[in-house]
Amino acid sequence: MSETAPSAPSASPGRRARSERRNRWLLLTPAMVILSLAASGPLLVVLIYSVLTPGDYGGVEWRFSLDSWFAVVVERDFFTEELTLADAHLMVFWRSLKLSLCTALLCLIVGFPTAYFIATRPARRRDMWMLLIMIPFWTNLLIRTFAIMELIRNQGTVNTLLVASGLIDEPIQMLYTEFSVLVGMTYVYLPLMILPIYASMERLNFDLVEAGYDLYANRFQVLRRVIFPLVKPGVVAGSILVFVPCLGAYVTPRVLGGGKQLMLGNLIELQFGQLRNWPLGAALSLTLLAVVMVALIFYVRAIGQEGERDV
């Protein structure tokens, strides 16, 4: 005993480190398995499908072809074999980007004051306000979208009220326009903007706001110079949470755009459905992914730089 005891401590650090390393890998394994099965695996399948030839009745033929990647941006005329830009696709890309940006902006404009309002209520009433924000979010997406439809269709509530009040003579066509898609998406994704901003705002030390007022900053200056920089992480998170799902939105543009205001999600669905061009669908999906990533990189860069300038 007396001989082994002193040697034990000197041997154990190495052994412990090794077993620790092994344990770490063991503990990481479930996460790795789920990640590879649920994210990397499907993505790989999509990538493979995008470089195959479309089958006649959907599905794919196992023949390598980059045609679908070209088809994302260019069109080959059926008769003359002339190459032109795929206007229809680019139009959809453009609309998706535009509507997603506008939605994020609109959500910010509506969500920021809302979060501020809730965060400045007495503590015991904040939860109630947040519940009111969250209840619609827990409701089925389709139902909410149809509710918006009911509001803005030609014989809907808004038009009826406007006509009855004499402000307009005949109903305004709002449904099946980009406007209706924008309104619908803003409504649907608003909680995703409010939540993270509220979380930052709740942690905000309101003494700082008072200090701002005390040092001659008016309401707008306090908002811009004190509140906004401090809740910026929430604004960034909220914008990403709204912008990203908007780019891939499917239900809302389908119902409120009436098949006329296609967005990327609808275009991709078309390829897998009616048009039976799975490889093009796969290529479009990956393009969407790339657009999201590029947009996020630019956004985060811009925010970061602004941060440095502020500092």
């Binding site: 008072e210 701002g212 007022y213 040092l215 001659y216 008016n218 110079r225």
Partner: peptide, 29 residues
């Protein structure tokens, strides 16, 4: 309103702006 009163406060919690440097805090007013 507070921002038009020629009165300044040293807060008990100091309430220094955490996103600014010492000099920027002093320059704010």
């Amino acid at each position: 309103p507070p921002y038009q009163r020629p009165v300044n406060t040293v807060f008990q919690s100091y309430a220094l702006f955490p996103h600014m440097t010492v000099a920027e805090n002093i320059a704010f007013g």
